[in-house]
Simulated scan of single mutants.
Amino acid sequence: MTTIKPFHSRDSASEHVTERRLPRYSAGQVRLPMQILGSAETMDRETYWAEHSHPTHELLWRDSGVGTVTIGARTWTITPPLGMWIPAGVPHSGWTPAGVVVNAAQFDVDEPPISDVPTAVRIYPLLRLLLARLQTLEPQTESYVLTEAMILDVMSPAEHEVLLHRPTAELLAPIIDAVLTDPSDPTTLQEWATRLGTSARTITRAFAAETGLSFNRWVTTARIQHAITLIGLGHEIQDAAVDVGYASASAFTTAFKRITGTTPAQFRAEPPIIVSD
Rank of each mutant, 00 (worst) to 15 (best):
T77L: 13
H226C: 14
V179R: 05
I176Y: 00
R268C: 03
L82Q: 12
M34I: 15
A173V: 10
L59I: 08
T79M: 01
E270L: 06
L164Q: 00
V17E: 04
E270Q: 01
M1R: 15
R74M: 06
D153I: 05
P183I: 05
S64C: 14
T47N: 05
A178M: 00
D116N: 12
V30F: 12
H160R: 06
H16N: 09
H52N: 07
G89S: 04
A227H: 02
A222W: 06
R217I: 02
E58R: 15
M34G: 13
A269S: 10
A241F: 05
D110C: 15
T181I: 11
R10Y: 07
T77N: 11
P174C: 08
I224D: 00
G261A: 02
Q190S: 13
G65N: 01
T229S: 07
A255N: 06
T260N: 07
L127S: 08
E46W: 08
Y25W: 07
R45A: 03
S250N: 13
A247F: 03
D11M: 12
P33Y: 01
G65L: 02
R217W: 04
I123E: 08
V109Y: 11
P81K: 00
P272R: 03
R258V: 15
Q238S: 09
F215T: 01
T221K: 05
P125H: 02
D153R: 15
G94K: 01
P186E: 05
G89L: 00
T202H: 10
V117M: 11
L146I: 04
I175A: 08
L37F: 10
I176F: 08
Q190P: 05
A40K: 12
V179I: 10
E51G: 08
A265Q: 14
G28V: 03
V109R: 05
F7G: 02
V69L: 15
V109I: 13
I237A: 09
T188I: 04
W85L: 05
F252W: 03
D11W: 06
T220Y: 09
P264S: 05
A173L: 14
H92K: 14
M150H: 10
R133N: 03
R10H: 09
S64Y: 15
D44N: 11
D243Y: 13
I273R: 14
T253S: 10
L213R: 14
V66E: 13
P183D: 13
K5Q: 12
E148V: 02
T3H: 03
H52W: 06
S248L: 10
V179C: 02
A178S: 09
I228V: 08
T254C: 04
T119N: 03
V101H: 05
Y124P: 10
M34K: 14
T220G: 07
I224G: 02
D116A: 11
H57W: 03
I273L: 11
A251F: 00
L60N: 12
L163M: 04
K5L: 11
D182V: 01
A240M: 02
L146Q: 01
G234L: 08
D116I: 04
T188L: 06
T136W: 12
S248Q: 01
D239M: 14
A98S: 10
R20A: 03
H92M: 10
N216E: 00
T75P: 09
P80F: 06
T260L: 10
I78W: 07
V154T: 08
A255R: 01
A241V: 13
A265W: 09
V69T: 15
L131N: 07
